[in-house]
Amino acid sequence: MKLRTMWRHIIESLRSIKRNGWMTFAAVSAVTVTLFIVGALFTIIFNVNNVSKQIEKDVKVRVEIDVKTSRNKENTLRKEISKISGVKKVSFSSKKNELDKITKTYNSNFKMFSGDANPLSDVFIVETTSPNKTIKVAKEIRQLDNVKTAQYGGEQAKRLFKFMSEVQLWGTICIVILIAIALFLISNVIRLTILSRKSEIEAMRLVGATSWYIRWPFLLEGAETGILGSIIPIIVINWGYSVVYQQTVNGLMNAGYSLFAPGMFLFQIDLLLIVLAIIIGSLGSLVSMRRFLKI
């Protein structure tokens, strides 16, 4: 197709967007809501999957010691843990040390729990020789005396995965419903355009315009409606993710995990949203063209 022709189609479709006023606004709004949910869901899913993978790779088992345990008994426990096969290294972190970590990462308000008010336990950080040993090691540690809990990354990852599969299921249901609404609204807008341009379509057909020449402006109008609907979600998600990232980066880093850095990750999410917007818009157009555009 000639560039001049494409330009003509773009102008025509933009004119039509303006002409359809409130109907366009409704369709754009539907796309906006849909893409916002899609964008937020994808951002969460990608990051949770990423963190879960990091957790799964973790070779550490975190053993919280009963509060009343004496120093001697703690030492005995340490020796017993060291003897378990698959244990590479056992390091101690006092409850004061644990509180300091929290205070540093989150908020100095936690300082009020220092000294005797500290509700945390002393902790052994047990490193295993490989990630798949953590389950067995944690299990054996739980059998020992004076152990409050023994948690390993894999367990948390499993819980996260389970939670995320629920989120994914409900998110997908929401997205499917919203996409259907967006498609319905866009196809209605395009139907209006087709009806309002009936005489032009007739004239084009009679003088031998190809069917794609006639279809292009409608397809573009749908795609442009989609793109308009993607602007707000993109801005909000870019801003929101950057804020969340800034606020959590230190905490997660201390725990040894990380979210995707905003730059490239957000670029990919933005691209995904734009492509999705174009697909939804064009699909809405196609639905109407199939039903109402007789060429």
């Binding site: 022709t5 004239a203 084009m204 003088v207 031998g208 315009a209 020449y213």
Partner: peptide, 11 residues
């Protein structure tokens, strides 16, 4: 002109 434009004749 429209009849010529839609079959992509030169301006």
């Amino acid at each position: 002109a429209y009849a010529m434009e839609v079959i992509e004749k030169r301006p």
